[in-house]
Nucleic acid binder design. Structure first.
Lengths: 358, 358
DNA sequence: TTGAAAGCGCTAACAG
DNA sequence: CTGTTAGCGCTTTCAA
């Protein structure tokens, strides 16, 4: 069964001997239609299995009731939480979601902006790939409002909702210092993106306040290999190798911060293999509070990221912009840059367990 | 700057004094247009910043060049990998992706099918929520082909691409038995979905072949609490509690299989806290080979799931169905049920390290 | 209250 | 080679 062709308003109209737009209005529950007619029309629509055509509707209405979401890597647990939150919140407001994955490719990022423009989404949420990003500004100026997620493009006048990484890094580092650490390191991704810069700043600030200085730079960039199979989160192996180097060089720090919990996995292994005890010989702090972090031994002290809050805040801000109307001007409303507070979760990896530190 | 209104074919046509569809054909690189005219049109289109309207195009062409992806939980790492792979492969074929998240809600699942129908996607990939699912069959019969991902709906005549969980569970269980285990347990989610059923079957099969029987049922259902914050992967805590119970009851198994690596985290903790050593006193095997699993101590023996293969295979199958044309008949081609092989990754959690088992 | 006509932006027939 | 006409499915004027 199932003649493929979809039922249209015209089918219902013809079947009932009324006009197309009487059907349209009846189904839209407009007042200007007789009760009896409306009932007959609704019954017939149900009988025929009518489903409105969103394409046609959007074309005439000028709005697709669709949001675009541009993500670098859905396998990053922070981003996957954002995806969930955003889809769900958008949906409760009647919006469908178009998802684009950029894999850190500037080229794909650029095309994503165009795709969104072609589809005429009502707004977009984007984790921008490193680089210029003026195409996002152009999209915004074309009348499609957008808010940047997690990564800020400071030189551009675009809305932004992210994490207060600087505060988080500062708190975590202070916590390590309070625990007795005097020689610290920070392992960070080697991407020129705002979260890295902000965590680094927070880390340095805490060190400076404590009057800690070191011979070399305590901030170490982890050369992340090109992920062979796309769609993996960070690779602990990269941090593992680097942590091994640090151990081998003999100049052992008494605390290590890492930019994400996956790096901590690598650090744990390198230390353990060297006969060192995490939380004892070396304190470790991470970022993300991923589900596994509480279950490592020792449990990982880490900064929890308010993914749900950020997703919600970003969607709400975007919807405001959308409703704000004529967005093409640019001088409509100043860009809003918003950073949500994140909190430190203290676990055993930062609590010296051997005894009191002397 | 930025008069919001988008540039249309008509704008270009008027600006150049030609007809709308000459512009259309020039831009579409159809042959029937003069070289000079074509050049002028293209130049003007570029100058004006013309971007085609996908809505309008789709409406007349009858295809939106869009795929629907319906996922229960993007935070499940297996699904997030599927999302990446599918988006990327769809994109290389020119398809955009509409993403819907169902959170295991039958209601949302039902509506997802209707949303996809309204948008007239060319095809859909869906991880169906437990339950009837005839709405998916209806969607298929409406001419929108779909393939089920990971979870089969065996009673429905729908295409399916998933994992050969039975084989994986069988191999893993055999491996544990070969390692000396005689008293095993399987901890599984309490969802009535095909992956759980298949893993259970594989587990039981291995036990039966080895002539192992036990007083109680070795398969234990982990009552998963309603996740408070949506968008979390499985909750290790649930497995943790259950593993504690098992330990407390005294009837300690010498090996534990779990349906996913997150459960293994809970099992690890319960055993460790009881003074037992994983891989030694109790062997543990998991499913998923999540990024953290190699970095636990001991490393977790687990079944690796071929997410990329499955995503790719599913998209390719779907595109074939789409191109296969008139899909409404039902008797067009029998549903294809395809299960990809998965392999066991052996690590220390299944290798008794204390000494030879006696 | 209902119908007829026009148009969203685009493509696909036809003519010329 | 190019322009005219028609139409995708729907909504919104405007008359009747």
């Amino acid at each position: 069964m199932g003649e493929s062709r979809r039922v249209t308003l015209k089918d219902i109209a013809r079947s009932l001997g009324v006009s197309v737009n009487t059907v349209s209005r009846a189904l839209a529950d407009k007042d200007s239609v007789g009760e009896d007619t409306r009932a007959r029309i609704k019954a017939e629509a149900a009988r025929l299995g009518y489903v409105p055509n969103s394409m046609a509707r959007s074309l005439v209405l000028g709005s697709a009731m669709t949001l675009g979401l541009v993500i670098t890597n859905p396998s990053n647990p922070f981003y996957s939480q954002l995806i969930s939150t955003i889809e769900q919140r958008g949906r409760t407001h009647g919006y469908s979601l178009m998802l684009l994955v950029t894999e850190e490719s500037p080229e794909v990022d650029r095309r994503a902006a165009e795709t969104l423009l072609r589809w005429g989404v009502d707004g977009a949420l984007v984790v921008p790939v490193q680089g210029e990003g003026e195409h996002w500004e152009r999209l915004d100026e074309s009348g499609i409002p957008l808010v940047c997620l997690n990564r800020d493009l400071p030189t551009l006048d675009l809305d932004f909702v992210g994490v207060d990484y600087e505060h988080g890094a500062y708190e975590a580092t202070r916590h390590l210092i309070d625990g007795g650490a005097r020689s610290l390191r920070l392992l960070e991704e080697d991407l020129p993106i705002s979260p890295v810069a902000e965590r680094t700043a927070g880390f340095r600030k805490a060190l400076a306040e404590a009057g800690i200085s070191s011979a070399g730079d305590p901030v170490i960039s982890v050369p992340t290999r090109r992920r062979e199979s796309l769609a993996l989160p960070w690779e602990p192996a990269d941090a593992y190798r680097l942590a091994q180097d640090i151990v081998d060089q003999g100049d052992l720090p008494d605390a290590v911060m890492v930019g994400n919990d996956y790096f901590a996995l690598g650090v744990y292994r390198a230390l353990t293999e060297a006969g060192l005890r995490v939380g004892d010989d070396v304190l470790v702090g991470g970022f993300g509070d991923h589900p596994f972090s509480a279950y490592l031994s020792p449990g990982l002290t880490t900064v929890r990221l308010p993914a749900a809050q950020i997703g919600t805040a970003a969607v709400d801000l975007l919807l405001n912009r959308i409703r704000g109307g004529s967005h093409g001007g640019g001088d409509n409303a100043a860009a809003e840059k918003r950073r949500e507070r994140c909190d430190l979760v203290v676990r055993a990896s930062s609590r010296a367990s051997k005894g009191t530190m002397t």
